[in-house]
Structure formats: C-alpha cells, structure tokens
Design a protein around this nucleic acid. Sequence first.
RNA 1: GGUCCUGUGGCCGAGUGGCUAGGCAGAGCUCUGCAAAAGCUUCCACAGCGGUUCGAAUCCGCUCGGGACCUCCA
Length: 505
Amino acid sequence: MSKLKVYNSLTRQKEVFESITPGHVGMYVCGPTVSGESHLGHARPYITFDIFYRYLTYLGNKVRYVRNITDAGHFEEEGREAEDKISKKAVLEKLEPMELVQKYTNLFHWAMNEFNTISPSIEPTATGHIIEQIVMIEKIIADGYAYVANGSVYFDVDKYNEDFSKKELPYGILSGRVLDEQIESTRELDNQDEKRNKSDFALWKNAPPEHIMRWKSPWGEGFPGWHIECSAMSAKYLGDQFDIHGGGMDLQFPHHECEIAQSAVCNHVMPARYWLHNNMITINGRKMGKSYNNVIKLSELFSGSHPILVQAFSPMTIRFFILQTHYRSTLDFSNEALQAAEKGLRRLWEAYEALQKMQVDQLSFDASKADAELNEKVNTLLAEFDEYMNDDLNTAKVLASMFEIVPVINSIKDQHIEVSALTIETFETLQQKMKTFVEDIMGLKSELQGDQSKLDGVLKVLIDLRKQARAKKDFATSDAIRNQLLQLGIALKDEKNGEMSYTFS
RNA sequence: GGUCCUGUGGCCGAGUGGCUAGGCAGAGCUCUGCAAAAGCUUCCACAGCGGUUCGAAUCCGCUCGGGACCUCCA
C-alpha cells in the first residue's frame, strides 16, 4: 500500500508524511475567534482537519490534536460599545467579554457537534495562556528581536529576516513573500505609528482605557497580539517542533508566517514540519467574509433562515458537500450545489444502510456463482479508498469510488443480481470497508432522528385514511389505525367537529 | 501595484500526457396495478489562439475571464 502524502505549503509540493515520533502525530489547527457566530466558511477547515485526524488515527497513529480558541483581543458584540468599561453603568449592564466568549464558544461547539467532528485532544484558550505568551515575548525582547513602544511590543521583522535568512528561516519562507517589496511600500506611515517598519507586527498591545480585555504585563496593562497565542500554545502542548500545522489559506500570511518567526527566535527551529492549508468557500465566486457582507451563519444554514437560501441544509449535507471537493480547491456555494449534495448523500447513505443491514449468516453464498469480473471490480474500488486518501486526502475520489459501488449494492438488494455474484470474502470486505470509510473516516452519520414536519405529514396521511374508513363505516380499519398508533405512543382523538388531533405520550 | 491560484459538460466538481471520474439535472428502456425507488443505456466537456509531442483537457507561451493574499479573517 502507498504511503500518505500531503501537500506541504512550506515546500509547495506533495511529500510523504512521516511523523517525528513514529506512531505519534502532533497536529495544531488554528481555531475560531469567538467574538461572533461561526459561518459556512468556518466549516471547511474544521471538517477538513477532522478528516485528517480520523485518517491519521485510522493509519494507526496516536494523534494529539490541538485546536485553540481565540478569546482575547477586541471584543464587542454588534451594537454594543466597548466604552462600557469606563461608563458608570452597573456591572450587569456592562459588556462582559467572557460572557460573549462563552456564548460563541458554546455555539461553535454545538455546530462542530452537528457536523460530527471529533473534539480536539486539547482545546486551549488564549486567555488561559497569557503567562506563556508573556514569557515568550520576554524571550524575544531579550534576544533583541522585539522592541517596546508606549507599552506595546513589536516584533522586529527586519532584524529577524537579516539574521534568520542565514539559518534558512527567512521571513516569508511560508508565504513566499519577499520582505524587500513590503518595505518599499512602507512610506505612507500613518500618523504616529509606533512601529519601526510597516511589516513589524504586535506581540503585545497597550490597552487604551476603553479596552475591556486587559492583563498586567511587564510593559503595562494590555493584551496579546493575535499571532503569539498559537506559538505559545502549540509549543506548550506539542513541543518546539511538531508534525502538522493546519488552518485556512487566508492564515498563511501574515498569521502563520509570524508564528514561524516568533517560534524560530524562541526555539531555534521551524515549529511545524508540514503546513497544511485548506482553501476557501466562496459564494457567487467571492470569499465568504464579514468584509464582503455575504456571510451565512451555520445556524442559518441548518434552519434555512437566510435570504440567499431556498431551503434548510442539514449538517451532514454540508459535510458531504465539503468532502465532495478536494480540500485545496475553492468550493463555490450555491443552492443548486447543496441540493445536489443532499440528494447524492441520501443515495449513498441508503445504499450504505441497506448494505449494513444484510447479514452474512443469513445470506447464502454459492462460490460457483461468483462473478469474477464483478468481484475484481468491487475489490479494486475498495482498495482505491486508501490510495485516494493517501494522495493528499482526496475525499472527492473516495466518494466517487463509493458511488460506483452503490449500484452493486442496490442490485443485490433489489435482487437484480444474486448476492452470490460476490464471494463471501468480497462481501465481508465490502461491508467492513464501507463502514470504516463512511462512518469512521468520512464521519458521516444518519440524520433520520425526529424530523417533526415529516412525521406530521405521515400522520396526516393516516388520519385521512382513517377518516375515509370511518366514512365507509369500515371501523375495523379505523380502529386498527388508532390502536396501532396508540401502541407507538401516539394518541389519536376524534374531535367534535369531525377533525382528528393527536398527542405524543 | 506586488505575490500566487484558477477557467472542465445545464449545475457542482475529480483528474492524469494516451485509459469511464463521480454527484445533481435531462432522455430512453426494464421492473411496477399506478407512482416512487432501483437497475440498464444514453446526451452534454475540458475559455481562446499558438507551440512541444506519435498523442494534450493534462506540458510551454500568449490573449481573455475569475479569484485569493498583501488589513481582521477559516
């Protein structure tokens, strides 16, 4: 069997994946900023890296998956001003950042659960690691790669680049950005900028009086810059150098580039060996984002309550939709595409369930009836699952192979072909492999539970039948419907006006 | 302006120098009391123009179009 290959943004090519410690994988993924509700765009990385997590585990690795929660920074809820802090409002009327953080963290977890993603091994928060971040900043200052200005601390990118280019860790190593060009456009310095160079970035920021999130530090009260948290937490839980660092492509610069610089100064090593980036979800060809005003929140997606949406789309439909595309391609949202995904998923899932319901010991296999060609086809398709996953996690191709197996399953189910067309070995491999890949690796699950509107529809049909039966004085039928429903815990009642109502026990 | 990615059939999307992607939609047939489902068959493609090659959607060049990053961003 082939080895897992992944596209490393650092080298811009697919590489065979080998962990630092065989059998163990450390993976860090940039988590959400919990100052607002997650949207469709957020679904992409967390589902993508959920698949990585699941697949690496399937390959026999013990994976430590760390995904942070960014809960420090500028925190305001829409319509509420940060000046709350200095106003004379009562405590309970003030904006309490931790309340916001909690609210959106909960919503994030809820959505991730809906998507059937596995929780990370560790989910550290930025606010819970202020000390680690301060220690790291002090080290960078001590080494001469950062400077203090008015209570803020900035990373000296120029100096870093000069020294670390010699160590093959230039600034821009990940994003391919050349520093000189950036300095070119440094001229238009806005007002009294504290930075020496435009490309310098904040490690610590002095908090103005109205800023509601603040911590004491050697440089005064303030809050950490947004790159340092990932450097501090990844090193703490995964070591100075670990295997995989993941995140959205938009984080490649400046976020990940800055992480590398910070970590390189402190730990003298490239923090992660494989940098994996998922591409963006677009809507009408545009990246989904606040600045474009085209955000569809996950809760709106699940409920269908957004003007763009023609209907609600279930979490599994969205998961499937995302998996149908390779993670490094952009994925364009549209109602039509989601509807197609919904139908496709249903087809796959129904065949999958039918397959799993078949029990080998209740089927009679006759080896003499085996269709050699069909067996070979099925076994080849099944073997491709691993090959395609190994090829930089090509879930799109795995699903395509699965869909080629669907007609075989349906044909057996509908008795268009005999089950004996497959050998018992092939059949058992098929069942087992489909289970592993559909549920354990793709992370798909049934969504049948409790769809109230459909149940209501079903009951209406039964009620109408019962009305007809009663009209024909066919009481045997009408009673059978009522009694059998009652056994299921649904009580039908005949109202005075001839209508019927029902209640659930 | 700089860096980079991308352009596949009605829609979404894989993809490799020669071999069926797949899903959804459409057409026909089979099955079926009817319908649905399912099965079988089928239509529709590689932005344009050149070049390399025995052979290119796949490599190179140009043209046109779309997008991302350079600011918070998944």
